[in-house]
């Protein structure tokens, strides 16, 4: 089957889907198997996913889910015994990740809807992320590097071995060998609840959002208070602002002073939207 005819089939399926599921299946023919024709696959070039021809640069980042939203640990589900692929590791269990129930199993849609393996700007319902995984976010991967739509759907290794979603760590360990070994022995990743007894560790996807594994910066919790009785009097603050910023940024006292000054002169430079670099430039000028 050539790609245009495949697309035609997909369009037909979409067009007739409201008319009746049975009819759609009939028109599509056999469900897709794992034996894809990879000749048309362009996922392994150097062009970033967002810069390839035909891919819109629409701001998909705005709908990227927060890390943790799609892969919260599912504490209610029974922990899975880890595969013994790491020789010599003391036995441990992996806490499965909680999946978006609307999206699983894949076969609930993909038994009728043919999937398009070409890298492109994703449409609904797969438009809630931008794939930034593989060689520093340059998009070396496409969906079917890791996803397998045969059967009810799941994951597959590079050699085509089928995996459950809960065994994502096996998939990750194909490339991230050092991290996987450290994870299995407890130097990477996170153990839940106890230091003694049953060792239950979080799956890779509990911390790393699988489609964009880098951990994002976020605001810190509030800093330590000044000890009781040690609140600095006003002239100390003024004095402190005279001090050169040896650490490259201002202290809480300098910042408090700056904000007080800014509030007095009608300018509030402490706006959270302001770029810290711009703030520093303001301070110098």
């Amino acid at each position: 089957m050539t790609w245009p005819s495949r697309l035609l089939a997909l369009l037909t399926v979409l067009a007739v889907a409201p008319c009746g599921v049975a009819r759609a299946v009939e028109q599509q023919g056999a469900p897709p198997t794992a034996d894809w024709d990879w000749s048309g696959f362009t996922g392994l070039d150097d062009t970033p996913v967002t810069k390839r021809a035909g891919i819109s640069k629409a701001p998909v980042a705005a709908v990227v889910p927060r890390v943790g939203e799609t892969a919260m640990p599912d504490f209610d589900a029974p922990a899975r015994r880890a595969y013994a692929v790491f020789s010599g590791v003391p036995p441990f269990e992996v806490i499965p990740s909680q999946r978006d129930p609307g999206m699983h199993p894949c076969s609930s849609c993909h038994q009728w809807v043919l999937s398009d393996p070409r890298p492109r700007h994703l449409k609904k319902p797969h438009d809630n992320f931008e794939l930034q995984h593989g060689l520093h976010g340059k998009g070396k991967f496409w969906c079917f590097t890791c996803h397998d739509l045969s059967g009810s759907g799941g994951l597959k290794t590079l050699t085509g071995e089928k995996l459950e979603f809960g065994d994502a760590y096996l998939l990750c360990s194909q490339c991230h060998v050092d991290q996987a070994r450290d994870w299995a022995y407890g130097a990477h990743g996170k153990r839940a609840a106890n230091w003694q007894g049953r060792r239950q560790v979080f799956n890779c996807t509990a911390c790393h959002y699988q489609h964009r594994p880098g951990i994002k910066a976020r605001a810190p919790q509030p800093g330590p208070p000044v000890r009781m009785g040690l609140e600095r009097p006003a002239h100390w603050v003024a004095h402190d602002t005279e001090r050169p910023k040896v650490h490259g940024y201002e202290s809480v006292w300098q910042r408090a002073h700056r904000e007080t000054q800014a509030a007095g002169s009608g300018q509030h430079t402490g706006d959270p939207q302001t770029n810290p670099a711009e703030q520093a430039a303001d301070e110098k000028s």
Binding site: A217, R218, A219, P222, G223, P224, Y249
Partner: peptide, 8 residues
Amino acid sequence: HYYDHEQV
């Protein structure tokens, strides 16, 4: 240890 950034 008094650092107070928007993001870390």
